[in-house]
Nucleic acid binder design. Sequence first.
DNA 1: CCAGTGATGTCATTGTGTGACATCAGTATA
DNA 2: TATACTGATGTCACACAATGACATCACTGG
Lengths: 188, 188
Amino acid sequence: MGRWEPDAESRFRAAALELFGEIGYEQTTVAAIAERAGLTSRTFFRYFTDKREVLFNGSERLQQIMVNALTQAPSDASVAEAIEAALISAGSFFEEALRPFARLRSSVILANTELRERELIKMATLASALAQALRARGADESDASLAAEAGIVVFRIAFLQWVSESEQGDYAQIVKDSLARLRVLTAR
Amino acid sequence: MGRWEPDAESRFRAAALELFGEIGYEQTTVAAIAERAGLTSRTFFRYFTDKREVLFNGSERLQQIMVNALTQAPSDASVAEAIEAALISAGSFFEEALRPFARLRSSVILANTELRERELIKMATLASALAQALRARGADESDASLAAEAGIVVFRIAFLQWVSESEQGDYAQIVKDSLARLRVLTAR
DNA sequence: CCAGTGATGTCATTGTGTGACATCAGTATA
DNA sequence: TATACTGATGTCACACAATGACATCACTGG
């Protein structure tokens, strides 16, 4: 057995999500998270740059999945088709079993402005990565930005629907519907 | 003459923008801003909830202008047309004389992640307001969100182009071009 | 002339975030 | 086996952001 309990990082994540749900994000101090995880504040900040970041470090993996999907789309696919493929590939993140977790996390984020800010910049980073991948496929500079950002808009709205209590549909279907709606709306 | 120098708020804004430009956002302390403005940190936080907020409190006015434009668009205008009117109405913010200021402010924001976060949430708030106004015009619930968010994407990209050194065109023309591009991209 | 108002200042406190240094089990190396 | 090394954690000290409580005092209206 090692000198310390394993999985410090996931213990931090679990403790944080619990406390945020129990007493709210602002009321939760880093010291409290660390105590519940059996560690110290100082150690918390070695794993996460930020108090907020403890809720967001799955995002690199999501980004990688989506960029891969986009890159591997058929080379004759249109920009819109490539983006659609990327959005749908994110579905592996959104399996039914993870819905309760996603719901809790999502409600914590929506309840706090600081956390929404962080979420938005993660989405912006994702959009940049997708735009970059589109350019690598030969898309025009500003077309790439526009398409990627618009794609992320659809992604966010679809995700919110998927995670909402009332919604029953599966993620891929919601994405396709949203894309279709956007098409209608932008058409003259 | 009043007991204090007038325009405390704009003195804070000016001092902050100067210092951010001179030594960077992170290196600038609130105490330093206050000192340059001839006031106290405590007073700074009476005007601005945040250190960041000192760069962002024009946004309510922008929002009001755009929502007004959207609301006053002809009642038979399509969702897309109403959004276009709102985007173009923002042009009163972006007159040629203000470009140097906008450029400095923009470069300060782009250089710092915290500030980019704040900018993004201001844009998100703006998008919500536009969506709300669209619903008031009778637009479908999710159509309103999609159209407003997509509109803000165009707005952000157009603004970035307008503010960039190389670009020469005027704001309204850039918006129209970007909208046209988005239309082409989303079409099947 | 006086009470009240409001913008500012002073002081104290909590929490975030970070640098510098200490500890010490496990591992590699002589 | 002894010794040095590594790396995850802890301890301590500190700067800065943010906020509550209370003090100050020019100006205003009666």
